[in-house]
Each structure stands twice: as structure tokens, then as C-alpha cells.
Design a protein around this nucleic acid. Sequence first.
RNA 1: GGGCCCGUAGUAUAGCUUGGACAUCACAGAGGCCUCCGGAGCCUCGAACCCGGGUUCGAAUCCCGGCGGGCCCGCCA
Length: 578
Amino acid sequence: MVDALVAALASVPGADRAAVERLLDTAGGSGWDLAIPVHRFAAAAKRPPRELAAELAAGLPATPGVARRFAVGAYVNFEADPTWLADRTLALVTARGATYGAAHPTGRTVCVEHTSANPNSPFHIGRVRNALIGDTLARILRAAGHTVTTQYYVDDIGRQSAMVTWIWSKPRSSWPPEIAATLDGADETEERADHWLGRPYPAVAAYVKSHPEAAADLGALCERLERGDAPPEHRRYCDAILGGMLDSLRRVSVTFDEFVWESALIHDGSVEAAVERLRHAPHFVREENGALAIDTASYDLPKEDERAVFLRGNGTSLYPTRDVAYHLQKFGRFERVVDVLGQDHLLHAKTLGALLAEIGEPRRPEFVLYQYITLPGGGRMSTRKGTVVWLDTLLDEAIDRARTEVRTRHPELPEGEAEQIAVAVASGAVRYHIVRVAADKAVAFQWEEALSFEGRSGPFVQYAYARATSLLRKAEEDGGAREADGSGGRLSTPSERELVRVLARFPSVLAAAARTTHVHAIAGYAHDLAETFNRFYQSTPVLKAEAERASRLALVAACRQVLGNTLDLLGLERLERM
RNA sequence: GGGCCCGUAGUAUAGCUUGGACAUCACAGAGGCCUCCGGAGCCUCGAACCCGGGUUCGAAUCCCGGCGGGCCCGCCA
């Protein structure tokens, strides 16, 4: 349809195909499905816009699928033939099923690195924004046809994880009182490892700041870790804490394909090789104390001293250096490399780019930056400062509320199923709540909003899915499954047509989300579809319809399919009932 | 001081990349809906583009300058 229109319009003076395509607005409004403003062409042709619009509308040849074309003001509007659009859309949804909206395989390999939180304490809701954006993006890129591998970069030799080992490898009786106090009232047997082992972390961070001898002790441990001389319990602590953190993420359906341990990059010589290449870089400089650096004056970095140190005076490496090694490894395996990073890593991202340039590496990772989730009253969530809301705490509360809801709605459900639904609803609410906002907006955490199951929420979408499922189940019980003939021939009411339009929009929404890495666009679309479905559901009988029954069942089936596809993309569980 | 990001109804948010017709949606507020298939729903109402310039036939969208907020400028990560 679009092609035909473009061809017809291209005869207008001054209008080439590209201009026409760009101006065609598929958003639609009431009464039209496609529209084009003619101001631009009118100016070129030195004609009044309204006159030109009227002339175009009258003169355009008939096009398949277009029921009506008419001018309003300086716009030419096109109305799709509802039957044509419905048939085409429903047929496509039925044929593609779970892959409706997805692109065909591109063969491109993409690495999405996300989360990569230091294994030192549990996830708070600020940290999970990274995980949820990253996980959702990976799902979207897969749907866009790419072969995606997700990676979690585990920093097991940095200062942050060293602190854990530093304190826990000492007998507890020797702990400074202010650190020991962090265990008061807690019970090792009742807490998951990340919560229990992470307890002293904020106090330790504060302690080493004000006690030079402790800082030196910690520094010595860091050096040992980098040399590969880690105390045996170190890896045990890292594994235990990371394991707990991953349990947490699994509660919101986030998993990883691969883990890259920082220590491995050191031990296999990757970091040393990177150092060697940096040592021969064009802007290599040696500092007074023997530290090695790159003079970054010629790069666009907002750094005061204009140099990036990549090897300390004592010969140990720094995060940017190890990240260079890591990225070289990624470039070797993947065609596209995407990093999900908090906004505070922007400078690091630029530094990394400069270092890669220095060693003659032409490729760069793509960065997806996100702003932070702050505390309800404002202020940053900080594990070190102890100002946090744990993901687990939020989920537990959400499950409690969901459980109450399920019990009042469905007292007849067996305990196990009710609990399973509550967990899925809670997880869906939390995931959706965090991913629905554009990544570049800072978010102030609000308990009530995060725990909402209505309106623009995950459960709202899940509910529409469950409703559609229930409807189809009932139809089947009536022995009417065969009635759904996949034809949209009898769909003509406003809510039916609107629903078809929304369904038809999905492929372009998905493609745009993949292109722009705007994961929130999927959340927005999922809500639009659920809302439109609910409107249809409310206003239009399906099972009791006569002639329209088959067509409407086909429409409901298509909605269920596409709602399900969006739930998959967002990482929310499809619930058959809730 | 320098750099990056954000600023849309009471609150929250979409649209901004690619400028077009009455700016999306939710929560809160007011009023309604057992007509059927699930009321985690539906309908109605009121309410917004930070300020000032510029470009343009046309600016929430592009440019410049303010103002307000966040973040960064470590031999931490």
C-alpha cells in the first residue's frame, strides 16, 4: 500500500520518493490510517497547500487496501480497507506466531555485557536497572535477528571484592567493633550468602578510609590477588556472594550466557599483552614514580591532568587496562559489542575509546548508558553508604501483596499454584516498573509505584494475556476452536479496527527498539496493546457473537500471541490465569 | 571551572534521532459502569511542553543563551 502511494505522490513537483516516505505518517488518528502533509510540496509548486491536498486526494488512483482518500486542510488522509488490513495482519500473526514482529536472522553476532556488579553485596534496586535494561535489550536484539551472547564481567581481584576477603579471613573476635556491629541481630543460617557476607562491607569501606594501616593491609591483599596469589578462601567468598546475587536476579528472570572473570584475564596474559601494546602507543608517557600512562591531551576527555594511567608504580594494572584486554577479547569473538553502563561510567567509556585508539584498534563498543534510580527522598543509593533498598526486599514485599490479591480473587486455587502466580506477578511488576522508563531519565524510587499491579504495570499486561487465554479456553470448551478461521473478514467495529492497527504496528515498534536500544518502547507498546485489548474486550462480545464469532476469536488469538511475544521480550511470565 | 545527561498536567511518564492537523499513557482527584466472555478492568471530566532568543509556512522536537536538577573530572571500579 505504501509503495503504491509513494509512486502516486512522487509525480508531485518537487517531491522525490525519499521525501514522501519520510513525511508519510503511519501513526494514524481517528478516521485515517495514513496521512501526509503537503505543505512542503505546495511551497515547491507555489500552490496553496489546501488546494494541492484537495487535488491530490481527488486525483490519486485507487490502491489495493485503501478504502478512502480525502483531504483535510493541508493533509491528504488515507483510510485502510478494514477487511484488507485485518486479514493481512491476522494471517501474518498466525503464520509467524512467536516470531511475529521479529526480523529474519541477520547472522550477526552481538555481545551484550551488562550488570557486571562487583561480588561484594546483594543487588539493590539501583543496580538492577543495569541488569534489567541489559537483559531486555538482549531479548530485543535476539528478536531483531542477531545471535546474542550476554556476558557478566566479574571483578574478583579489585579492591571491592578484596574487602570481603580481607575482613572475613580474620577471626571475628579480632574485628574492629564498628565492623563487628554490622552482624548484630543477624543470623548466618537465615541469610543468603550475598546478604550475610556483604553485611560488613560498608563498615569496612569506611574503616579503611580512616585507618592507614588497614588500608595498607588491604592494599597488600589487592597486590596478592593480582599476582594470582589469592588466599584460598577468596574464590570461595566470591563464588558464594556471586551465587547469591545471581539467585536474586533469577527471581526477575535474568540469567547470563557467560561469565568473564577478571582474574582470568590477568592469568592468561591478556592484560599483560594489552599493557605491552599500550607501552608502545604513540602517546605513551612514564610518570615520576614509574607508573605508565597515556597522554590523552589529543582526545576529547574532560580530565584535568589529561593522562590515563594504565599501570601503577607498583606494576599492577587498573580497571581501564583490564577493560582494554577484555574488549580485545570481545572484538575477537563478536561483530557487535554492546556495554550497558551507568552514567558515571561515561568518562571510563571515553577513556577506553582513547586507549583502544592508542593501540590501533579501530573498533569500539556501543554504550547504552542509563541514569540512576535514587532514594525516595532523592540522593543516591549506595551500598557503601548503606542507603539502599534491596531487590530481595522489594520482591518479598511485592510477593506478599500479590499473594493477598490472588487469595481474595481465587480462594479455590491450590496453594502451590496461587504462590506461583503471586511470584510471577511480583516479578513482572518489578521488572516492568524499572524498564518502562527511558534509560536516560533519572528515577526516584517510590514504593507504592513499584508495587502497583494496575495501570501502566507488568501485571496489567499479564492480565490482558490471561483474559485472552481464558476466552480462547472457553471457546474451545464450547467445541469452537475450529471456528477461528483466521479471517478478519467481519471485523468492523471501532475497537476491533483499532486493535488490528495496534497489532499491525508491532514489527516496526520492535525494529525501532532494537535500532535505538530503547527498551522502554517495548514496555510502552505492551501497555498500549493490553489497553486496546481491554477496551475491545469490554465493549465487544466474542463467545456470544453470532456471525462475528469466528473473526473475533481469531482476533483474540492474535492478541494473545502478540501480548505473549511482548511478555517474552520484557521477561515477564505468561500467566494462563491470575 | 570543564564535560555529559535530564527539565512535558498535582505526581509520574511517551513523543524529540527523521519538525506538521486537537501532545501519549498512568497514578491521584470528580462522576459513572454486575450488557455478556475474569472489575488487576471499562467509560466521562478537569489539568502540562522550564525561561528567552533564532531557523522555518510550521518548533515539545532543530540551533544559541540562560535557569533548575543529576552525574563525572582517582595510580577506585
